[in-house]
Computed example of a mutant assay.
Amino acid sequence: MVNFSKKLTTDQVPGWEEYYFNYKLLKARVKVYTVQTKQGNHDRRRVLKDFSKLLDDEIEKIVLFMIEQQGLIAARLEELGKRRAVLEDIPLLQEITELREDYRAVGHDLVRLLRFVDLNANAVRKILKKFDERLGYKFTDYYVRSRSNHPYSQLQQVFKHVGIGAVVGALSRNLGDLEEREGSYLNIYDQNPLAIPKDPIIDMIKATADKLTNSTNFLRFLGQHALIRQGSIADDSPEEQQVSEDKYHFISLVLNLANTFLYMVNTYIVVPTADDYATSLGAAATVCGVIIGSMAVAQLFSSVYFSAWSNRSYFRPLLFSSVVLLLGN
């Protein structure tokens, strides 16, 4: 199990270290806030304000660097486009090969930028999760809601990675034009996209972009509390896992398991054998049908009652149903 701080350091692009999210700084600040909370000498509003400012500064640093790199990539694509225009008049095989390799080099740089954004987005998600768990706040909801549509917020740029699609499209189109099409004069826009020869770097870019989209989709971030995925606990330290495990209610877990077990026994053992049992006691065949049908009728009425009851409380209906199932079986 790799600690996320180490993963963040290991996966950094050489030369870009200063532009990554300063996870260690904010993690240390969360520890300070936690100690102050235990000692009872902290101001909640000041904590939220200070931590929000730290996050804003870090995200702004990431976004400005991302925009700068996108500009450099766009400038390189523009320069390559001029070279390609010259080759349309005088097509030289060696020059075309070199131009294709230069486009691929731009593609590799784009992949690096996508991974940069993905790693930083995960760092933001994790520090928000850590802050909420350690201090018991719903800071993630506040932070995302207050900055999701604010004109001065840079948060959307991180999760929407604006401009990446245009760069991918430009790379795909130009590499497609440079591929030999055996004398075809069709424009790539007139062909089936699946039939156009695709350079391997395009597949790599698409896979990286899809991964980034899945992990940083802004709507999921807003709706699922900072993209806390089911597997994210595995990346945390043992101390973080202990905080999450303490939230489980043991009695509720036992009741759910017992309830499920008794329901399965009732469905697959008691009801199918109820007619044989009734017959062995000397009951009529119609009584057997009533016994079997009573379960469906009981489910119909209880579903309405328990639905209304569980809207007010969940533990009591669960306890009641477990007791009834135990007595019935």
Rank of each mutant, 00 (worst) to 15 (best):
Q299E: 14
S237V: 04
Y23R: 06
D236A: 00
D141E: 12
G293C: 07
D109K: 08
D276N: 12
A308R: 11
F131G: 06
V168W: 03
Y142D: 09
I62L: 10
L155A: 03
R312D: 14
F65E: 09
S307A: 06
P14W: 07
H108M: 06
N192K: 11
N120H: 04
S215Q: 04
E101M: 10
R229K: 10
K198V: 08
V265R: 02
G169M: 11
R220Y: 13
Q69C: 03
F301G: 12
F21C: 05
I202H: 00
S153N: 01
L325I: 00
V106P: 01
L119N: 09
G71W: 06
P193F: 06
L253Y: 05
M295Y: 15
N259G: 15
A105V: 08
G40Y: 10
Q242P: 00
N41R: 02
W309F: 12
I233V: 11
K82M: 00
Y189L: 13
K31I: 07
F131H: 14
L113T: 11
I228M: 07
Y268W: 13
E245A: 14
L25N: 13
V35Q: 14
E58V: 00
I251K: 10
A296R: 01
L262P: 01
F4N: 01
D199L: 03
E18Y: 04
I67S: 08
E68Y: 08
G165I: 04
A123Y: 11
P197R: 09
L92T: 11
Y143N: 00
I188V: 13
E58F: 06
M295E: 15
D276E: 10
I127R: 02
T140R: 01
V323W: 05
F65G: 02
M204L: 08
S237F: 01
E88S: 01
N217D: 15
G163K: 14
D102P: 04
R312N: 12
I202A: 07
V86Y: 05
D235Y: 02
A123M: 06
S52N: 06
R312T: 05
F250I: 03
F116W: 02
S5I: 12
A75N: 12
D210Q: 09
R181L: 09
L92H: 15
F116S: 04
Q191H: 01
S148L: 11
V144M: 10
N266V: 06
L25E: 13
T34V: 04
F139E: 02
L253I: 06
F159I: 02
N122E: 10
A296Q: 07
R104P: 00
I127D: 00
V30S: 07
L87F: 08
A296K: 07
N149D: 14
L64Q: 13
D246R: 02
L175E: 06
V243Y: 00
L110A: 13
R76W: 03
N214V: 02
S310H: 03
V106I: 12
S302V: 10
V167L: 15
V13L: 07
